[in-house]
Amino acid sequence: MPAPHTGGCLCGAIRYEVTSEPVAAALCHCRDCQYVSGGEPAAVVIVARDALKITKGKPKSYSVVGDSGKHVTRQFCENCGTPLFSDVEANPAIWVVKAGSFDDPSWIKPGAIFYTSSAQPWAHMDANLPQFPKMPG
């Protein structure tokens, strides 16, 4: 499905648009993503920084220090709690958008699985996707 792609939170307080095709899509099993997703991996879409436009509302932020030693700031709706985006200080050229926050996420095709070393024993792993114990690179 060609861009633009629209999305937002469950209650509608925050809306956004992604104006170009994503750089990549992946599944992440890091412990932080498990907390944010409620247990399974976070399905994410990586987009160029200038491709994400917030069109309504202002997300709340929460920052942690990632494995890189740099901050990862997760943004979410303070009304309904929907996880929306991550701002990764180690790669300021991108936004990481939570796949489930798109209005129609059916077009998303994850291309890799990250942080398999943190995955729970009951987590499903697609054997056809490249798998990485941590973040590659």
Rank of each mutant, 00 (worst) to 15 (best):
I14P: 00
Y16D: 01
Y16H: 04
E17F: 05
E17C: 12
V18D: 00
V18L: 03
V18F: 01
S20A: 15
P22M: 11
A24G: 11
A26V: 05
L27Q: 04
L27F: 08
C28G: 06
C28Q: 06
H29K: 08
H29E: 02
H29D: 03
C30M: 10
R31E: 09
D32T: 14
D32H: 13
C33W: 00
Y35T: 14
Y35Q: 15
Y35I: 15
V36W: 14
V36A: 15
G38Q: 05
G39I: 07
G39A: 12
G39L: 07
E40D: 15
E40V: 14
P41R: 02
P41H: 05
P41D: 02
A43F: 04
V44E: 02
V45W: 01
V45Y: 02
V45P: 01
I46L: 11
I46C: 01
V47R: 01
V47L: 05
A48W: 00
R49V: 07
R49M: 07
D50V: 07
K53V: 15
K53M: 10
K53G: 04
I54A: 09
K56L: 13
K56I: 04
G57D: 03
K58E: 15
K58M: 13
P59G: 05
P59K: 06
P59R: 06
P59A: 08
S61Y: 11
Y62Q: 08
Y62H: 13
V65S: 09
V65G: 04
S68A: 06
G69W: 03
G69Y: 05
G69S: 12
H71K: 15
T73H: 03
R74T: 08
Q75G: 08
F76L: 05
F76W: 02
C77M: 06
